[in-house]
Amino acid sequence: MTHAKPRILFLLSGEPANPDRPQVSALTAEVAAGLERRGASVDFLTPGAVEIARLHPAHDLYVLKDKTPFNLSVAQVLALAGARVVNTARASAVARDKVAATALISAAGVPVPPSWTAGTAERFAPLAKDGALWLKPQRGSRGFGVRRIGRDGNPGAGRALDAFGLPLPLFAQHEAPSDGTDLKLYVVGERVWALRRPYPASTLKEKLGRVVTPAPEFVAAALACGRALGLELYGVDFLVSGDSYSVVDVNAFPGYKGAAAAPEALADYLFNCVRGARTEAAEALR
């Protein structure tokens, strides 16, 4: 059994027009091709309705590419059932939680802009006198729900509630100084690529940015973010101003746009994970 092709499954979100059908990005397709060239068998899945007791790992490795709430729960169950999941469901969930992630990164000694959480927006009002604020949802992504409040502006009032009327935390961050470009570091295990982009980037060309060699302090800060959150595959966004910098976002399994060597590095990393998972399983049987 241990000599059969290693089996790897990518947990993906569905296509917008056909939610049951996995949406395979160019990056995912490229990584999967790299894994197949290394001798693995790769499947894509957008999980549907399941009887929870019947969930069990049928693959040697699960890649938590799209962190939908459903994929996070399924991945956590698979991990409880003994599956190796990359990134872990726990790390992916913490990275999505701006309140927890920001505090953990800061506690790890990485500079982050002054950041707060509160239950109601009016509690942020006194902060606006010290500069512009960015208000973000606790678990937002791709800029959804983000608001900028200028210096001395009014953050408004009221609570954030979920679909069932239960309260959610609000997150606010002082605008970090920027010299007009941002620095994005992509990490695969210990390998790091850096891209510099205009801030904010609007065109595709701007979003791709240009590859640069990061200073060691940026590499150290990015790796510290990964350790603090328990991530293996991630991106870290820095804003830079002169000699100072701060981390404004950490993303689990990002798109690695502009990092041409990343797909091969991801295939290498995941293939090594599956070999490690198999060795552990074989040892457990002895």
Binding site: V99, A103, P167, L168, P169
Partner: peptide, 26 residues
Amino acid sequence: PEEELIRLNDLAIDADLYCLKSDGEM
């Protein structure tokens, strides 16, 4: 927590034991 303004840069352990008696996401 929902009634506080919590600065995330300064969080530190300030008790010997915490009791998490809340279902709230915050």
